[in-house]
Design a protein around this nucleic acid. Structure first.
Ligand SMILES: [Mn+2]
Ligand SMILES: [Mn+2]
Ligand SMILES: [Zn+2]
Ligand SMILES: [Zn+2]
Lengths: 142, 142
DNA sequence: ACAAAAATTAGAATTATTCCAATTATGGCT
DNA sequence: AGCCATAATTGGAATAATTCTAATTTTTGT
């Protein structure tokens, strides 16, 4: 697993921009998130990370994920009280949680739809972010 | 604090419908949620409940809230990993979380908008529920 | 290479929630 | 009303995701 130069640059810029250092661990975790573009929990990230970097600690996994979220290179995704998941897809999208398989699927959202959602806010309200979570049955399970 | 007859009937029907019993505690908690229609955490519900029923336990508060959610008399609301909140507003609505004040405000949603959100799902996906959470600054704080 | 600052690490601490086993309350039936 | 079976409540222990802490290691600029 190797971080492509374009993403390496992205990572370095983002870190530098927020006064943080580039480390093996941060690079490794960013790379593994980009490799399999799903929505792993911290524990799953930890398991994947150890495959190539057996000495990394769970605390570091949490730290790295936090850094990546802060620098907006990945997103955090929560469903109810389940463990937080991490998403490397930075395009505007919602999440669909399949109750059958547990799978989480990205749902693309048009600017127009997001605009409409913003417009229903009462006067004086301004949102930086809208979180949209569907839950039901995905195509594979119906 | 007294549960109005209409709501008492609603509660009893819902409980009966799912083979559960009517208890003082369940009624009390339903009543206090209806009285102040905000979005308290279990701890806050516990605090309010003890004002009139000092012997109620936190476990019971959790149990009652779970029962009310199961019977669809209230909704659960989650923001990130914060403690779960409970909402007695059963109309179709989203939640706006103010980062400044911590306040949670209901945002009404038209059927039409929800319809549009359903329509963006890929073929084969069916959602039972959409959870929409805004976060930003509310009118009071801007 | 050196020093200062930041990151990593292992393990302890925290905290919301769930579980457990004992006690008490409810509702149907006589 | 009294009895019984069943369900609910209770206090405290257990759980689990995440955060904190203090020691060690790594990075970066000089
Ligand atoms: Mn995603
Ligand atoms: Mn609400
Ligand atoms: Zn599925
Ligand atoms: Zn506000």
């Amino acid at each position: 697993m190797r971080l492509e130069p374009q993403y390496k640059k992205l990572l370095n810029n983002a870190l530098e921009g927020s006064g943080q250092r580039a480390t093996k661990q941060r690079e490794h975790i960013f790379a593994l998130l980009l490799e399999k573009r799903d929505h792993p929990t911290a524990d799953e990230v930890y398991a994947r990370a150890r495959a190539d970097m057996p000495t990394i600690s769970l605390a570091t996994v949490y730290n790295c994920l936090e850094t990546l979220v802060e620098t907006k290179l990945i997103r955090q995704v929560n469903f109810e009280r389940e463990p937080t998941r991490y998403c490397p897809n930075l395009t505007q999208h919602a999440h669909f949680y399949c109750r059958e398989s547990g799978e989480i699927v990205d749902i693309e959202l048009s600017d127009q739809l997001v605009d409409e959602l913003m417009k229903v806010l009462p006067k004086g309200f301004s949102a930086q972010h809208i979180d949209i979570a569907y839950d039901g049955k995905c195509n594979c399970c119906s």
